[in-house]
Design a protein around this nucleic acid. Sequence first.
DNA 1: TGAAATGTTGGGGCG
DNA 2: ACGCCCCAACATTTC
Length: 496
Amino acid sequence: MLDAAPVLLWFRNDLRLSDQAALAAALAAGRRVVPVFVLDEAAAGVWAPGGASRWWLHHALAALAGDLAAAGSGLVLRRGDAAAVIPALARATGAAEVLAGIAIEPWARRQEAAVAAALAAQGTGFRRFRTASLFAPDALRTQAGTGFAVYTPFARAARTRAAEPGALRPPSPAPARIPSPPLPESDALGSWGLLPRAPNWAGGLRRAWVPGAAGARARLAAFLADGLADYAARRDLPGQEGTSRLSPHLHFGEISPAELWFAAAPEAADGTAARGAEKFRAELLWREFALHLLWHHPDLPEQPLRGAFARLAWRRDPAALAAWQRGQTGIPLVDAGMRELWQTGWMHNRARMVVASFLVKHLLLPWQDGAAWFHDTLVDADLAANAASWQWVAGCGTDAAPYFRVFNPVLQGRKFDPDGAYVRRFVPELARLDTPFLHAPWEAPAAALARAGVRLGREYPAPIVDLPAGRARALAAFAALGAGTVAGGAAAEAVA
DNA sequence: TGAAATGTTGGGGCG
DNA sequence: ACGCCCCAACATTTC
């Protein structure tokens, strides 16, 4: 059986050996496997991996190559047009067919279609498998047969489907051995230039993360032991390690969503532990919902789903955008979030909502600018989740926050970072400021500032915008879009 | 997965 | 004892 023609296994956002449906299919058919990864930056265009994602990808590929080598195989790296590279490799190895995960990003769908056409033209088979999501992106539909526009009914449908026998395969373990023919030559990973050189800003990332399937597994084990039980309450506190931090592993597919779905089993727990597991599954479903939205709305990353928002009078203010990007807005919680992002390639979810609301509302700068910065700096940058989340904050998505929902970063700080641990860690110049003033240093008495060694405008900036004035400006600009938009926002809220 | 403004209620100080 | 005011606490409405 093993002397039959091999198959090409095209790795995409599924850089793992466990619960990898395409790999499992190849092995079940008794085929030898030629594992391939293609770096096709032209196909991705402006949505090619950003700096932080490139760092992660480098290490994820190194880890995958190591895992494949340990299984007796290897990883063939090639750079260029996938529609040329994949068919050529299939010819060179005599592969009968190519197996790959299903793409969801619009650019990846176009790439996949081009690969499919090229393979068909030369008589090579092409089979795609669901590897990056719990459900196929078009598997869940409303009664009317359309895609969902609101999270809650989507999640209800997903939970119902998940409970159906056989809907979610229990995850399969990584195979111990992966038979392969002699592999074609591979690019040297180092030659791809995915790692930053001068300046090398990756030190903070290296300290915070262990990319690769083994790192993902260790992170999951730690989360199951320490985080899942209290997840529902602690996930909102940026000063604590209350979240799973699995998002980058999930984005690159180092661990599958099904593995996480089954690892967090509410039925196997009770009380707060069951609530934590339910909440964690709800977050997995938010990820599925974003993929679902991007599948049905390919222009989600560029265009507001509510068309009226295209007319919004966004400001142009490069200095304010730069202050936001660098964590120098003078608003402690905003700056803590942006500096956590810059230093570690990740930001706590609560902080993401606050900094996004601040950019879009208080600064009245386009959500697309925020999404672009996140895409470049997040190690978990994911086109679907990023676009859907920014549209949610901006109020222009289908199930978005109403336009008048403006996070007050001072109140959010006092509520979710009550002891100021988060701000003190990432805004050390404020570390000695008394807690009552920490989230609004401009309100601190001169004596308190002096005691803490802080001069506003020197050690730490004065606020670049007056919060009440920024809020009022945003409400006016958003309200100017018209009554139809207002009614729509209220309707979406009522449904949710 | 909001915040602020406005309205309501009830306890308590005080003349 | 009573009315008045203040204000905290909570509820509702509005943005």
